[in-house]
C-alpha cells in the first residue's frame, strides 16, 4: 500500500529473540500510573511551572513579600514545595494599616514552613515619601495614590534585596486581581514571576484547603483561609468594598475574559446587570497593566499571556 505520501522505509534491526525478556501478557495493561485529581493536578502544575522557571532562568532562591493574606501565603507554600524551604525568603513589610492578625498569620506560616524571615516596617518610609511628595500632590487626601505608594515601597524593598542577594521576586497577585486591575503596577506587580496569575481567587481558596489536606498538620493557618480578604492599604479596607464578592466575580471573569461570552449571555447566567457591566469595564481598562505583569503559570484554557492578545489601546466595549 506504499504510495508517494506513505513510503515504507525499512529500519534494519537485529534479531532480539535471544535477549532475555520478562514475561508479559501481550496487550494486557502494564504500568498505569494513577491520574491525579483536579486540584492535585493544578497544584502540581503550579509547583513544576514555578520551579522550572526559577531554575531554568538560573536562579536558586526566591523572595516573597508575606502580608499574612491568602495569596502571598499560597505563593510561599508553592515556592517551598518547588524550591525547598532553604531557598525561600519571606519578608513582612507591615504598615500602620496592617492588622495584628495578618502579622501573626505571616509569623505562623513562616514557622510552619521553616523558611528564613525578616520584618521590614514601611511606616516611616511611607510617611517620609508622602511628605516628600506633598509639593507635587498638593493638600488633601492622596487617596488611592497613597494606597499604591505603600505597595510600591514594598515592591522597591523586594527588588532591592533581589538586586543585592540574587533571589527572584515572586509576585503574589491572583487572576481575579489581574483581570480587574486590582493590583499596583511597580508595586505588588513588581517581580520576576507571578505564580498565581492564572488562578482565580475562589480557586486560591480551594488550593489552600487542598494543600492543608496533605500531611499530618495543616501548613496554612486556618485564619488565613477564613478571614475576609483585604489589601490592608487603608483603615478597615476589605476587597468586598471595591469588588463584587469573589463567588460572583469569578464566574463573570471566566465567562468574559476566558470564554469571550457576550454581555447578554453573561446576564443570562443570572448576574446583576450593573455588576456585569462594571466587571467587564474593569477587565477592559486594565489591559495595559496586565501586559506589564510578569509571566505566570498557565493552568486554564485562557491565561493572561500568550493566550490572550487583546489590543491595549482599544475603544470597543460590549453592549447589550
Amino acid at each position: 500500500m506504499a504510495s508517494d505520501d506513505v513510503p515504507i522505509i525499512s529500519v534494519a534491526t537485529r534479531d532480539y529473540s535471544s535477549r532475555e525478556r520478562t514475561h508479559v501478557i501481550l496487550g494486557a495493561p502494564q504500568r498505569i500510573e494513577p491520574k491525579m485529581e483536579y486540584l492535585a493536578e493544578i497544584y502540581a502544575a503550579l509547583v513544576l511551572g514555578t520551579g522550572d522557571y526559577v531554575r531554568k532562568s538560573g536562579f536558586k532562591k526566591a523572595i516573597i513579600g508575606l502580608s499574612g493574606g491568602i495569596d502571598s501565603t499560597l505563593t510561599a507554600v508553592i515556592a517551598v514545595d518547588a524550591l525547598g524551604a532553604e531557598n525561600v525568603l519571606g519578608i513582612s513589610m507591615p504598615s500602620g494599616y496592617s492588622s495584628e492578625g495578618s502579622k501573626t498569620d505571616a509569623q505562623l506560616l513562616v514557622e510552619n514552613l521553616g523558611i528564613q524571615f525578616m520584618t521590614i516596617p514601611i511606616e516611616e518610609t511611607f510617611r517620609a515619601s508622602l511628605k516628600m511628595l506633598e509639593p507635587a500632590l498638593g493638600e488633601g487626601d492622596p487617596g488611592l495614590a497613597a494606597e499604591n505608594l505603600q505597595a510600591r515601597i514594598r515592591g522597591n524593598i523586594l527588588m532591592t534585596i533581589s538586586n543585592k542577594l540574587g533571589p527572584i521576586v515572586l509576585t503574589t497577585g491572583n487572576k481575579s486581581e489581574m483581570a480587574t486591575g486590582y493590583s499596583t503596577l511597580y508595586g505588588d506587580m513588581a517581580g520576576g514571576f507571578a505564580v498565581l496569575k492564572d488562578v482565580l481567587k475562589t480557586l486560591v481558596f480551594d488550593l489552600c484547603r487542598y494543600r492543608n489536606s496533605l500531611g499530618s498538620a495543616p501548613v496554612i493557618p486556618l485564619s488565613v483561609i477564613e478571614k475576609p480578604p483585604s489589601a490592608e492599604l487603608r483603615p478597615n479596607q476589605k476587597d468586598a468594598d471595591s469588588l463584587p464578592p469573589y463567588d460572583v466575580l469569578d464566574p463573570i471573569l471566566k465567562a468574559y475574559a476566558e470564554d469571550d461570552r457576550s454581555f447578554s449571555e453573561i446576564l443570562a447566567m443570572g448576574f446583576d446587570q450593573k455588576t456585569v457591566e462594571r466587571v467587564m469595564r474593569l477587565v477592559d481598562i486594565s489591559e495595559y497593566k496586565r501586559r506589564q505583569a510578569p509571566p505566570g503559570v498557565k493552568i486554564t484554557t485562557r491565561a493572561f499571556g500568550r493566550d490572550r492578545r487583546l489590543p491595549i489601546t482599544n475603544k470597543y466595549r460590549e453592549t447589550l
Binding site: P29, A44, G49, Y53, V297, G305
Partner: peptide, 29 residues
C-alpha cells in the same frame, strides 16, 4: 514534561491498544 516560561508540560504519556483501551500511563508532572 517541565515548565517553559508560562507553559507547563504535564507528561502523563499514554499507550492505547488497537481497541482503544489504555494499557500504560506515565507519571504526571
Amino acid at each position: 514534561v517541565g515548565g517553559q516560561d508560562e507553559l507547563v508540560f504535564d507528561g502523563g504519556s499514554m499507550v492505547f491498544n488497537e481497541q482503544g483501551t489504555l494499557i500504560a500511563r506515565a507519571k504526571q508532572f
